[in-house]
Design a protein around this nucleic acid. Sequence first.
DNA 1: GCCAACGTTGGC
DNA 2: GCCAACGTTGGC
Length: 157
Amino acid sequence: MRYWLMKSEPDEFSITDLENRDQQTEGWDGVRNYQARNFMRDDMSVGDKALFYHSNTKVPGVVGIATVSREGYPDGTAFDPQDPHYDPKSDPDKPRWYRVDVTFERQLDRVIPLAEIKDRADELEGLPLVRKGNRLSVMPVDKAHYDFILGLEHAGQ
DNA sequence: GCCAACGTTGGC
DNA sequence: GCCAACGTTGGC
């Protein structure tokens, strides 16, 4: 089993939105970055765990956990001219973009802020999130790092 | 709202 | 294949 971190802007799609979806499941569509796409298309498996991260918000950070519930398949939003993520260069016969489905597992008892994660950069060496200028929206997380971040949830503040 | 960092595009 | 211009991400 692998571990991931997936970013979403809560104004667009939050952990609570996922919790309230039918089957508490949603397709992770709209990703238009090749590196992130490759992870979803090639490396994610059903049962993998993902840290759900809120970006572009007052307190960016990890807010919950989701489980991968369907492996990579074509992102249909790329074929829909009405969709904000429409990409005319993605051909249904040869799709350019992929998504996975994720299912809600739980919300954390508190947000683990990016600032706090950065404070622990020594323990999180190699985590793309703490690298300067990182813009990757889907990234792999070592199991040790995954456990460490979740260990902060109830750490004395 | 600002702007640094980064990815993509397209001219040459 | 280089690289300047441009658009986007995302923290602050």
